[in-house]
Amino acid sequence: MTARTVSAVRSAPDESGAPAAPRRSYRRGRRSPAASAALHLTLLVASLIAAAPVLWVVLTSFKPDSTVEMTDQLGPLSLHNYRVVLQQGFGGWILNSLIVAAGTMVFGVFIAATAGYAVSRMRFPGARPLMWLFLVVQMFPVAVLIVPLFVVLKNLHLLDNLLGLILVYATTAVPFCAWMLKGYFDGIPTAIDEAGRLDGLSPFGTFWRLIVPLARPGLAVTAFYSFLTAWGEVAYASQFLQSPDKYTLPVGMQTFVNQFVADWGPMAAGAVLIIVPAALVFFLVQRHLVAGLTAGTAKG
């Protein structure tokens, strides 16, 4: 397709022989001052819209109760809200979220890695249905599995239990990781596998000793992404965790803002405490995120 586009475009000037002058205004990479100003203005407005809500929350987190609902007044700024949040079990929620997210991440990556490799490298009956399954299970809406999982966990006495939540999150994390990792393994040349086999490694040995080390960046990104999804999950956590000392962050934060109360100050302080580390880590890895997400699908 690309070749034809080129030839079609290339053949044009011989016929038209367009004059040189009007072409100049179409040059890429050069702009009139007005175009430059418009470009910067658009980007400035967009950046403002993107950043303003975050900045507003940061500002609100320092406000006292008396002015927290007043847009044009600051009042004496202080760390009071942060103190309130930390006294209300915020540390425990963070810990719970970390446990659940890390558990989901480890479980997902370990279980999924070999399957991702098998689908990427070996032709076997069942490989295509398996890929299809990975894709479809990721599409499952919460509503399909939540009731049966609720009943199962209830019978196993795993409701209100972090391990139960990890198992629930594995339902999406495992197929997601397998899908992503398959995409990463596809990007590693098969010549490496062949070299490993010639040196007498078993297929699993090839995978474990040669491919896994090479796929480390892909493994890291996949792990990070499954961590993120588990860390911010709302639907299951809100129903399956019932006692406040088991709450994860999204559930705990609902105690500040829900149908009945709106403690904006502590909510904002909690938000800032979550945003700062989350954003720092995010910006370190985000360049790799999209490539992984779209690679699997394009090749699938």
Partner: peptide, 13 residues
């Protein structure tokens, strides 16, 4: 930036 903010935090904000 909006992507770096966890979506539940964004919702509260």
């Amino acid at each position: 930036l909006p992507w770096a903010v966890p979506s539940f935090v964004a919702a509260f904000s």
